[in-house]
Design a protein around this nucleic acid. Structure first.
Lengths: 342, 342
DNA sequence: ATTAGCACTCAGAGAGACAGAGTGCTAACA
DNA sequence: TGTTAGCACTCTGTCTCTCTGAGTGCTAAT
């Protein structure tokens, strides 16, 4: 439906606009090497492209800027994947050379590097904790009424939570209880803990522990109230560098949304495996009307565990970001699989 | 050296400017209830105050704004402490009514509430971890080469770190080692751990564990590489709401500094106990030239453990913020003392 | 010592002019 | 018939000018 020439023009306009942030006019286009025809011809084609909804004008006699539909077409059909440059690769790999083991630290560092490399905001969804299996439970009494429960998963994730002991609870029975818990619950996925506690462990505890009743519910609550997967951000204020956000009123709601890290969980987990691009209003959130979000997933073995995302203006360097994300998610998957696959 | 009338004028100008963010003119001043003399008189006094360095003009025929020296004088001599309002008090107290036990969560919530109450950026320095004493060490093997070390302090702080086991290390000896460590190191302040490991524990380990040498250094490194006290922020983007920062160029370096949380540790730990105000260039940091920082300390028992701080424009509601901080730090001290004092 | 009055200053808003970059349309061209 | 040259037109951004309002500083009167 689009001629080759129209495709070329659309592509060049979008790529020009991505770098200049200025509406692109026919005359400046005609000067480019890849364009061999005159500005008048370009004007005609532009006019057609506008009619079809791929381009827009900011005012009657301005140059053209891509519409959301234009970006969408560009992303779907015109992208030329470009391998990251040497020095970019080096920076990417730097996440992996340091000997870091904790999942969360790797994830955090990833967010930092991705944001530095792109100059956009990086959002990385950490590993899904509750699909991991229990390695060990520890309960350490602090005072007659309080104790710390520590849960260690097979992926090296440690979570700890204060619990208040039931008043009737005999502190000396903690060790006994912990033994029972460990004997029964090791290798159980975190999601199944609650169930298992009520179904199996409660009975056991009742045999050995006095006043076990209230303790069971405290335990069950504590152990299953696992945090949702943690989100890490990098370059939260990078949006300020984009010329389209040089207006405080516009950027401030966006920045507070980013600061509070709210709503991003749903936003970046909507997509299945692979790389996905959501442009402007496709995000279904007025705050993000001028933003695009690119998401990629990473895995441990076959199991998808997390998401990488880059949030930038709709005028985003799609091909660069997509390449970076696809390289990075592949490397991250390799690393994670090596480190954590059973 | 300043007459009562000059003091009154200075105070009214500052308080007016704090609320309006506009230069204050003689005529608008003369209309205020507390001012009984004419605008011409005020002009004369203003001129004197300017000569003495307490006021400034933005241009030759503008109204006056306070200088740093003016704010300083105001903070030192003219502040009228005002008790927080009922609903503010209620919000303040809300940190304490929920049954949260972990120090860090209390601290984090404090930052949030302080920032919401003031509309400025709150910075809260968490408890000094390494002055706390070791309650328990756990080492849990994950794979033949890696294990997790978990350190629990008497204040309920849990830290965990992956360690890579020396290749020659026999995984079955971990339990033995942990027992030795716990027998020797419990109740030792975190700061003294390294010393104690080399001086006392190494000898013991050498008797019971093969290849103890490399393990000792791994342990010592791991256990003493404690993070510095953690800093929590609230309202990181609140600066955007201040009219003096309605210019992106001005605010963006400030915001990135806040985002990276860098440099604030030194900034807010400079002061001894009590409430301190640093105004504009007193902060010794060009990025903060237009900002003021108010710090307060809180304690557990007699031991000072942390700092609360509010970062705002130099045109800050000093008296309100100071009152809030002093109330809050007192309450926080009470709570922490009750919860954690031995 | 205080105040009224007046000349002066400056920022900010609004109007008009102008250059530059762009468009759309028409007519000529290959 | 598709392409191009040419021209009239449009809109933005910038500059300048003017005007107003809010302010000052100074002087003379109270």
């Amino acid at each position: 439906m689009l001629t080759d020439r129209q495709l070329l023009i659309l592509q060049v306009i979008i790529e020009d606009f991505i770098h200049s942030a200025q509406p692109v006019g026919s005359r400046s286009l005609s000067k480019k090497d890849e364009i061999t025809f005159s500005s008048a011809t370009i004007r005609n084609e532009m006019s057609d492209l506008e009619e079809m909804g791929f381009l827009e004008k900011t005012h009657t006699s301005s140059g053209r800027i891509p519409s959301e539909k234009g970006y969408r077409y560009y992303v779907d059909h015109l992208l030329s994947p470009q391998a990251p440059k040497k020095n970019e690769m080096k920076l990417l790999k730097s996440v992996f050379v340091e000997r870091i083991y904790e999942l969360e630290k790797i994830v955090q560092k990833s967010a930092k590097i991705l944001s530095e490399l792109t100059n956009y905001t990086a959002i990385v969804l950490g590993p899904k904790v509750n699909e991991h299996k229990l390695k060990k439970i520890q309960i350490i009494p602090l005072s007659p009424e309080t104790a710390i429960a520590i849960i260690i998963t097979d992926t090296g994730h440690v979570e700890n939570r204060m619990i208040s002991l039931p008043p009737s609870f005999d502190i000396n029975e903690i060790e006994k209880m912990v033994n029972i818990l460990n004997a029964r619950l090791v290798d159980v996925p975190l999601t199944d803990l609650k169930d298992k506690i009520y179904k199996e462990v409660a009975v056991l505890l009742s045999r050995h522990i006095q006043n076990y009743g209230s303790m069971v519910s405290v335990l069950a609550d504590t152990l299953t109230d696992t945090k949702p997967e943690k989100i890490f951000f990098g370059g939260k204020t990078n949006m300020l560098r984009q010329p389209e956000f040089h207006d405080i009123a516009k950027v401030s709601t966006l920045l507070s949304m980013i600061e509070q890290e709210q709503g991003f969980y749903e936003l970046i987990t909507q997509n299945p495996t692979g790389i996905h691009v959501r442009i402007g209003r496709e995000n279904q959130n007025t705050v993000l009307d001028d933003c695009s979000l690119i998401t990629a997933t990473y895995s441990i073995g076959q199991e998808q565990v997390g998401t990488l995302a880059i949030l930038g203006p709709t005028r985003m360097e799609y091909s660069r970001v997509i390449s970076l994300l696809s390289f990075f998610s592949r490397d991250l998957t390799t690393l994670m699989t090596k480190l954590y696959q059973k």
